[in-house]
Design a protein around this nucleic acid. Sequence first.
DNA 1: TTGAAAGCGTTACCAG
DNA 2: CTGGTAACGCTTTCAA
Lengths: 332, 332
Amino acid sequence: MSDVARLAGVSKMTVSRVLAGHSVAPATRERVQQAIDELGYVADAAAGALSSGRSEFVAVLVPSLASSNFSDTVRGLSAALEPHGLQLLIGDTDYHLDREENLVRSMLRHQPRCIALTGSRHTEATRTLLRRAGVPVVEMWDFPSDPIDAAVGFSNVNAAREMVRYLAGRGHQRIGFIGGASELDRRGLDRLKGFRMEMKALGLDAGRVIRLGDSPITMSHGGPAMAALLEAWPDTQAVMCVSDMSAFGAIMECHRRGIKVPDDIAVAGFGNFEVAACCMPSITTISVDAYGIGLRTGAALLAALEAYEQGVVRHAGKRIRVDYEVVTRESA
Amino acid sequence: MSDVARLAGVSKMTVSRVLAGHSVAPATRERVQQAIDELGYVADAAAGALSSGRSEFVAVLVPSLASSNFSDTVRGLSAALEPHGLQLLIGDTDYHLDREENLVRSMLRHQPRCIALTGSRHTEATRTLLRRAGVPVVEMWDFPSDPIDAAVGFSNVNAAREMVRYLAGRGHQRIGFIGGASELDRRGLDRLKGFRMEMKALGLDAGRVIRLGDSPITMSHGGPAMAALLEAWPDTQAVMCVSDMSAFGAIMECHRRGIKVPDDIAVAGFGNFEVAACCMPSITTISVDAYGIGLRTGAALLAALEAYEQGVVRHAGKRIRVDYEVVTRESA
DNA sequence: TTGAAAGCGTTACCAG
DNA sequence: CTGGTAACGCTTTCAA
C-alpha cells in the first residue's frame, strides 16, 4: 500500500479510502486507481480484518456438499451474501457432530461475522463455542422449538406426516418406510419419526420400517432396502422413502422384479431432486426449496448483522418457516 | 492472549508457543492449556497470518458445487489438506470465466498459500493475477499442454475418442452426440471435439450432433435432446452423451417412445455418476476418479508448498495424469 | 479532502 | 526453556 501511495503521490490513508469506496476527490481517486493497476496491488484482507476488527467471513456448515440439497442451499447463501462483500467459509461435516465441532472451532479462529449451520443438534461444546463467539447464528433445515439464535427451515417430522396422509388418502393402508441405519442423519430420523407418528394416528401399522446402509442412504441402497421390505412384508401397498435417491433405487428394484409402480406398489420420495422429475415413473415427493433456504438464511444473517451494528444482541429465537409441499407424480 | 498469559503466569510468547505446538516445558504447557480452556480463548487467525506472513488458506475454484464430480473433488482436496491445518476457501464459478476472475481476485486478498482451479481456460487477467500471486497453482480436470504451473487431470478429448472407439467396436456406425449449447463448459466442448475427431478418423459421419440447453446439461435436457436427435437422424444406432445426466434423460425419453436401449439404440454417458450404475438399463460410461483428482491435487499442492519453503519457485509445468476407463454396462 | 500517528493480536528474532 | 520488542499491513481517529 505504501508503494501505491508513493506512486500516486498520496498517503496510505487515501489509498485505503479509494479501496473502501470512501469519498476521495475524483482526480485523486483516478491517480490512485492507476497506481493500483500498474503495480497489480491486492490489499491484504488479514491486515484489514485485524485493523478494523471485523472480517468478511461467513462460516457455513453443511452435512455434505455432495447432496444437491445442501449444495443448493450453499448457492443460495452465496447469492445472498457475496453482493455484500462477504466470503463463505464452507465446511462439510460429513454428518458428524464432532466434526462439526472441530470445524466450528477452526472457523471461529477467522472471526466470522456470522454463522450458518445445518440442523438443530450440536454438541454441547459447539453450543458453548457459538455462544461465546457472540455473532449471529442461523440453524438451517429444521424448525427447532429452541433455536440457538435464529432458524430457517421446516419440520421434517410434519413433512413426513403429510406424506403419510397423502398415501393413506390414496387408499393405502399397509405402508412401509425405507431409511438409513445410522443415527447420523437427524433429518432422516425426523422423517421416520413423522412416519411412525402419523401411521399410529391413523391407526395403521407403523412397524414396516427398513433401515439399511449408512445415512444418508443413496440410490444404491434403495434397491436392497426395497428387496428387504418386500421380503418381510410382501403385501405392502406403498413405500415412503427417506429421500428421492433411495426412492429411485427402490423403483429400479421393482422394475427388476417385474413389480409395477404404482399399480402393484406405490413409492414416494422426499426432497424433489432432479431425478424425481425425470425418471420413469416420475416420483411423487415432498418438494423443499433448498436454494430458498440459503437465500433466506443469507437475508436473516444480513438483518442480524445490521441489528448487531446497532447494539441488538440476539434474535431471541426468531424462526423463519420454509414451505414444503407434496408434489404428485406418477409413482404414488 | 494477554489474558491467558496473565492467568497462566507466563508471557504471551509462551502461550503462542503452546498453541503452535513448539517446545515448552510440560508443566508450563499444562498451565497454559488450562488457562486457555478456562477463558475459552480462541486465537485470531488474521493476526497470526499478518504476523507470520502466511495464511492457512487454500483457494479452490470449481465450476459448480452442484455437480457430484466437483463436490467429490472438493472432498478429496479437503481430505488431503485439512490434516495439514489448511482451510479451503471454496468458490463456485458457475462455469463463467469472468466470475472465476472475480473470485480469484477476492480470494487473493486472503493471501492463500496455494490455489486449485478447474480447467485450463482462464481470462488473461486471471493468469496475470495468478502469476503475480507467486504461489503454487494446480489446474484440475484437464491435461493442458501448457499448464500455468502444475495440472492434475486427463484429456477430455482423448476420453471421448475412446468412447467413440468403443461404440464403433460394438458395430455402430451412425453415432450421434448430445451435449450443451453454450460455450461455457470447456470439458463438455472437449468431449464433443474428441467425438468429432474420432468419428472422422474412423471415416464415419461426425455431423450427428445435438446441442441443446445451457451447459452443463442435466437430466431434464437429455430427453428433448434425444427427441431432436431421433427427429433429425431416425436411423441413429448409438448416442454418446456429454455426461451421465443427459444420458439418463435420453434413456428415459427412449422408454417413453417405446425404443429399446440398447437393442434399438445404444446410449453412453460420461462421468460414472451414481445414477449410471443404478438405473435401468445401467449406463455404459467413462469412469473418472473425481475424489482422486482432489486427493492428488492436494498432494501436489503440499509438495509444491514444501518446495517453495526451500526456494524452488515453479513446478515447471508438472502434469499428473489421472486415469479414466470405459465402464461397460447395459446401455451400450 | 487529505495526512500522521496509534494500534489491532499475533509471531519472528534475539537475549537471557 | 522463556521473555521482551519489533514488526506485519491495514483502519481508526483526530488534526489540518
